[in-house]
């Protein structure tokens, strides 16, 4: 089942857990507390190529490291969308072009792209769950004919919490995918759908038995979404979610990211709902 999932054992540095110097090329403010930071190596050394759904440890010099998903890798530039949610991410969202930071990775198992080939693909993102899904979406679009129907459902709390606004417009215009965007609540200036992300699933068109779903967002959103997808007949093993836990080392040695038997950093972050379902029902696991 997991045979086709790709991962990499460690960072490119020969010093264990040591970041490589990178610098900021550009910063795009996505929402009031979220920024997309593009980084390039500062020097000749770079981390290995990333796979959709993998993450890196971003290092704010003198402050510390935080696990951040890779939201794009193009022409050697790594893109990371970071929400200001603590000391380290605060520093990361405050970076400006030219600033120094550290990167190590990539880490973890990403989206099972091989398993999705030839199938309908349903991508469900909640809030900041979209960035880690974007590389998967891009890979599908690069080789569009290798996949069946492509349904994207993106939900956020309010319209101002939506990220990648321009790209959403672009995806909406495409004929080879269907994008539904919904928000939990909106003012009169919002002409789109209002309702939690699960309310848009009944409108998504896919053949449940030959569908692979990639779900990323807050844990509770992923749980409800996975339940709804399974309710539509998608096998639980074909629903993949990206878990998030406290991480210090990202290589399965520090113990922080355990979720039952899984080390989220090493065995995940993308795990099958079939495997996780019983655990998602246990409080404070």
């Amino acid at each position: 089942m997991l045979g086709d999932r790709t991962g990499s054992p460690g960072g490119a540095s020969d010093v264990p857990l040591a970041p490589l110097p990178y610098q900021v090329r550009s910063v795009v403010r996505e929402t009031p507390d979220t920024a997309t930071v593009a980084v390039v190596p500062r020097g000749s050394r770079r981390i290995g190529p990333t796979r959709p759904g993998q993450f890196v440890m971003l290092y704010a010099f003198g402050i510390g490291e935080s696990p951040i998903g890779v939201s794009d890798e193009t022409d050697g530039v790594l893109y990371h969308t970071v929400r200001d949610a603590g000391r380290i991410t605060h520093a990361l969202t405050r970076l400006t072009p030219g600033d120094l930071l550290g990167v190590r990775g990539p880490y973890g198992h990403g989206w099972p792209m091989e398993a999705a080939r030839g199938k309908d693909v349903v991508i469900v993102a909640g809030g900041l769950g979209l960035p880690p899904l974007r590389p998967a979406l891009r890979e599908i679009l690069r080789d569009r004919d290798a996949y069946g129907r492509l349904e994207i459902v993106y939900g956020a709390r309010t319209p101002k919490d939506l990220v990648y606004y321009a790209e959403l417009q672009e995806w909406r215009r495409r004929a080879d995918l269907r994008l539904q965007v919904t928000v939990d609540a909106a003012g009169r200036d919002w002409y789109g759908d209002v309702g939690v992300v699960t309310t848009r699933l009944p409108d998504a068109r896919f053949d449940p038995e030959r569908t692979v779903a990639f779900v990323c967002g807050p844990e509770i959103m992923m749980k409800f979404t996975a339940q709804a997808l399974v309710g539509r007949g998608v096998p639980a093993e074909s629903v993949w979610v990206s878990m998030e836990r406290n991480m210090k080392c990202a290589i399965g040695l520090c113990g922080h990211c355990q979720f039952g038997p899984s080390f989220v950093c090493r065995d995940g972050p993308v795990l099958s709902y079939g495997e996780l379902a019983p655990r998602l029902g246990v409080r404070e696991l």
Binding site: G62, K248, C249, C254, G255, H256
Partner: peptide, 10 residues
């Protein structure tokens, strides 16, 4: 028991 944390000391 093997759990550890990391500390940044500037």
């Amino acid at each position: 028991c093997f759990c550890s944390t990391q500390e940044e000391v500037p």
